[in-house]
Design a protein around this nucleic acid. Sequence first.
DNA 1: GAAATAAGTGTTTACTTTACACTTGTATTT
DNA 2: AAATACAAGTGTAAAGTAAACACTTATTTC
Lengths: 229, 229
Amino acid sequence: MTSIFYQNKDKHYVAVDCIIMGFRDDELHILVAKRPFEPMQGGWSLMGGFVNDLESVNDAAKRVVEEFTGIEDIYMEQVGAFGDVNRDLVRVISIAYYALVDIEKFDTSLAEKYDARWVKITQLPELIFDHSLMVKNTLNLLQRRAAVKPIGFNLLQEQFTLPTLQSLYESIYQEDIDKRNFRKKILSMDILEKMDEKDKNSSRKGAYYYRFIKEKYDQLIQQGLHFSI
Amino acid sequence: MTSIFYQNKDKHYVAVDCIIMGFRDDELHILVAKRPFEPMQGGWSLMGGFVNDLESVNDAAKRVVEEFTGIEDIYMEQVGAFGDVNRDLVRVISIAYYALVDIEKFDTSLAEKYDARWVKITQLPELIFDHSLMVKNTLNLLQRRAAVKPIGFNLLQEQFTLPTLQSLYESIYQEDIDKRNFRKKILSMDILEKMDEKDKNSSRKGAYYYRFIKEKYDQLIQQGLHFSI
DNA sequence: GAAATAAGTGTTTACTTTACACTTGTATTT
DNA sequence: AAATACAAGTGTAAAGTAAACACTTATTTC
């Protein structure tokens, strides 16, 4: 079956490493784990796994995220391939993906099983291999993506308040945003629906809940307009 | 040497495919070749090669571009990994890179050797496997990059006229740009140096040559300002 | 010296972004 | 029940950026 052409070519271990992101306490968090085996046993690591034969790389990434979070239907995007030699005892070519999940849906029993924890992106420890670089590139990519696509909502529950949404963007861009300008912009796109209930957890007055309405977003796009924060 | 941990993991063929871009006759061109072997023999293909053991993926891409163009010191950036199953007779995971080269430096003898040719990006034939998708993603990435980084100059000779530079950006964005606004913007950054000579090939009046001065660009950045077209 | 042709040049208008401070609603305290 | 504390919620003006637009200039060719 294998063509003669491939006979003398090298084969490589190929892994996926996933930057699994969640949002909690006004900050982006990343799921990291203590590596349970050599090399680099005990070092902080992203969630990863090997790509199998007969499995697309995208599917492998999806499998890994589901395995470590218990969450399905996840928003993911490829960050890129990292293929320096000496990444590992044997060279592994790794393809990084970031995933945006609703941290509330996270199956916490898996955290114990894999010795995994959510760490604030501003307080990440040094990670093994080139994982810190992967995170850096991810944040960069996320900043550019979140500015023009409504992907931030994947990090929130179905209902969220505008103060929460704003703090999400502040955490992504790592800078403060003016409250009035932010509200003006997000509401002017008319892609959110205001609920009747308020969230009273973080203020006495309470903040109204909103929902992202995909149909309204599709409409916006159809009009030749764009999402932009 | 190989850790016991890797014993049962699958290994994969990993290739690099390069979207080698040049600029000529007011249009972006891509170097493509008739594939000389099965599978897909005779189909139009990007320039590619396999990643060797003990070679970083970046180095493999660099090696491939040098092999097919004869040009060294090339501006390259990774586009991403393409890892669907059934890409090939056996599955090959491919990592795409785009390269921006000065088409005048191209070693044309290599074109015959590899049955390669420069094709206008607007007139690309259907390419094999997912190569057409790679080109599409590249153009997308290039549009975003060229808007904020002075990478377009890699496609030009050291001296170029403003009409040429403008037509380069028009070809990248695939839309017309206003002449006065373009000049205002590019000149206001003060990153170009005007020469005394003119290019008289495309007009009687002649257009002054300019050069991109990296030191001026670095200065711009140091001032907290940004390149932007 | 007239014609042809691409290079080169400024200003006005519209739009987008930024800066900025007070009022409102509600739970808690006195 | 009045006062307090606190985050939510609201509008306008100024500055900056982007977009639209048409004529003059330099040079070769006829």
